[in-house]
């Protein structure tokens, strides 16, 4: 069963794109006893090797979360900001942000309270530090949305499930594979700067030059009112990527993932995503081409402070990943 304490520790950690140090140190603590070798590359990726020889497989989950950079502090001490990654204006008013030094601010909206106001641009918002808090903040400082995790039955609700839940899947798979002779050379890579342009995975793929790639990331669960038809559902199992806007999964990879899920009786569903992509998109296009899969964790309310996942899906993703890489991969 999903280690909820692990999930909580990761989702509540602070780490906007480019500022993943704390998340990396936290993950390092969990994986240090599991990996044969650990290093950090030039892009800040945490690279953990398990096994030696056989096919090289890169398993990527990104550590970073969306956030904001302070661009300006006005004479009254209000901060202005620009987004890191896909910050949604509709989610911001009244939300709280936390800076690396612990300072918490509240996001406000310019103008008089107006229930019909539809903010369109981040430039309409400001951060209220209150009580002289701005003195602890400098232009260029980085913040993330802050909110604790809630548990509700099989559901977990938190910020930054995107993509700390992918990191959880990777860590759980490493735990399951500790001591197993898989016949593969596995590289579990916790990547940087996914939310601003899939930067870390690109560097990791070039540096490792693997035979195959597997990205672990969230996907949009669309089983909510007036959402898509035939869509990924929460609780219906691991989502096996078929297509997204940056990644068409090669048929041989798709067949490998689907046949493995079926052979092991792992709950799964097919995923076709028309908004967003994952680390696999750049891994696949690196060097002479690295055939790549994505295993997605269905998630509601992506890029909000209430990203919601189902632990049964998380378990299915772990089982599927382990089943894919626990014996020599040969396609």
């Amino acid at each position: 069963m999903t280690d909820k304490a692990l999930v909580r520790a990761l989702v509540e950690a602070w780490g906007p794109s480019g500022y993943e140090d704390h998340v990396r140190a936290l993950i390092r603590g969990y994986v240090e006893p599991l990996a044969d070798e650990i290093r950090v590359d030039g892009a800040g990726n945490l690279i953990c090797r398990m096994g030696k020889g056989g096919k090289k497989i890169l398993i990527a989950a990104h550590m970073d979360e969306i956030g904001m950079v302070v661009t300006h502090i006005d004479k009254d001490g209000y901060g202005r900001f620009t987004g890191i990654g896909g910050l949604l204006p509709a989610t911001l008013l009244g939300n709280r942000v936390r800076f690396e030094n612990g300072t918490v601010g509240v996001i406000g909206l310019e103008g008089t309270f107006d229930i019909s106001k539809q903010p369109k641009s981040l430039s309409e918002f400001f951060i209220d530090f209150s009580d002289g808090g701005a003195s602890r903040i400098r232009v260029g400082d980085v913040a993330a949305l802050t909110r604790g995790m809630e548990e509700r039955g099989t559901r977990l609700i938190a910020k930054s499930m995107d993509d700390r839940i992918g990191c959880v899947v990777a860590i759980e798979a490493m735990r399951a594979l500790k001591g197993v002779q898989t016949g593969n050379e596995l590289y579990f890579v916790f990547t940087t700067q996914e939310e601003v342009g899939i930067r870390g995975a690109k560097a990791a793929a070039f540096g490792l030059s693997p035979d195959y790639g597997i990205a672990l990331d969230v996907t949009l669960a669309m089983d909510t009112p007036k959402n898509g038809a035939n869509a990924v559902k929460l609780g219906a199992g691991a989502a096996v990527k078929i297509f997204d806007v940056g990644h068409i999964v090669p048929p041989v990879i798709k067949d490998w993932v689907l046949s493995t899920a079926e052979a092991h009786g792992i709950p799964h569903q097919l995923e076709i995503l028309t908004a967003g992509t994952t680390d696999a998109a750049v891994i696949q296009q690196t060097a002479a081409g690295i055939p790549s899969a994505t295993i997605s964790i269905p998630t509601r309310f992506v890029h909000t402070t209430s990203e919601t996942v189902d632990v049964n899906d998380v378990d299915a993703c772990v089982k599927l990943l382990v089943a894919l890489i626990e014996r020599p991969v040969d396609m």
């Binding site: 030039g42 892009a43 990726n45 930067r199 560097a203 070039f206």
Partner: peptide
């Protein structure tokens, strides 16, 4: 530039 090879700070 940061994209080059295995990543450049």
């Amino acid at each position: 530039v940061s994209f080059a090879r295995a990543g450049v700070p």
